[in-house]
């Protein structure tokens, strides 16, 4: 069996102008078996104005009609532990992923089940009827190699991340930079802004994120 594996670690800060500052710490493992079956998993621990934890499990199959296209199903658990928020979200997300040379896109939808019962926040098999929401799930990224094949700059437009799936119109803008140190190691930097009110056409920017990390490939 041919296996390709990668490990990502990243750390950073999220500023929410209403709620405060949070420190993001994320790890992710990705496996590609026989260039066909994909699996990834990761977690987020984010202390700050309130403790946030999240993890995801993602399984994919490639190729789907074309070598660039793969189909995925993702489970995402997000828990806001702080007593003043005390809420958990379990999301099931089917999506398609296109990986081109200079362009990547994920598009699907998330079925998000929100649990407000503080006694069962970590129980992932609870899907209460109080609040079930269906949202678009997307990420579009365009990349450019900046005068150097080892430096890649990207512009991302998305409402999702490894451990996050936002509302349909929660559109974040990100600048993504990757510096390939060797065939195994890469350094990564990501800066993003998220406006509030995008769908209502009265926008102010109230969330900012900066992440730095490294990737190791086997």
């Amino acid at each position: 069996m041919e296996l390709e594996q990668s490990f990502d670690l990243r750390t950073g800060t999220e500023i929410n102008t209403t709620l405060g500052v949070r420190f993001l710490n994320e790890a992710r493992y990705e496996l590609l078996a026989n260039k066909r079956w994909q699996f990834s998993s990761g977690f987020l621990i984010a202390p700050g104005w309130s403790l946030l934890s999240a993890y995801h499990l993602d399984a994919g199959y490639n190729p789907l009609f074309r070598p660039e296209l793969s189909a995925h199903i993702k489970f995402l658990n997000v828990v806001y532990h702080d007593i003043s928020i005390g809420t958990a979200e379990n999301s099931i997300i089917p999506y398609l992923d296109w990986k081109g040379k200079n362009f990547e896109a994920d598009i699907g939808f998330s079925a998000r089940f929100t649990n407000f019962d503080r006694n069962s926040l970590n129980y992932i098999f609870i899907y209460p009827n109080d609040l079930i929401q269906f949202h678009l799930y997307y990420r579009f990224a365009a990349y450019y190699n900046w005068n150097n094949p080892n430096i890649r700059l990207g512009l991302e437009l998305k409402n999702s991340d490894w451990n996050y799936a936002g509302n349909s119109f929660e559109i974040s803008w990100h600048i993504d930079a990757v510096y390939q140190l060797s065939s195994e190691w890469a350094l990564k930097l990501n800066f993003g802004v998220t406006p509030s009110g995008f769908g209502g056409i009265s926008v102010m920017y109230n969330r900012f994120v900066i992440l730095a990390g490294a990737q190791y490939r086997i």
């Binding site: 929410n16 209403t18 709620l19 309130s50 946030l52 806001y80 003043s84 928020i85 005390g86 809420t87 979200e89 407000f116 929401q133 269906f134 949202h135 678009l136 936002g166 509302n167 349909s168 119109f169 929660e170 998220t194 509030s196 009110g197 995008f198 769908g199 209502g200 109230n206 969330r207």
Partner: peptide, 21 residues
């Protein structure tokens, strides 16, 4: 979000959850 596909709603759910509490 009142219906599937509705895009007009608050986008910062953590702020929403805080208000709900």
């Amino acid at each position: 979000s009142p219906v599937i596909g509705e895009t007009s709603q608050s986008t910062n759910m953590e702020e929403v959850y805080g208000m709900m509490r």
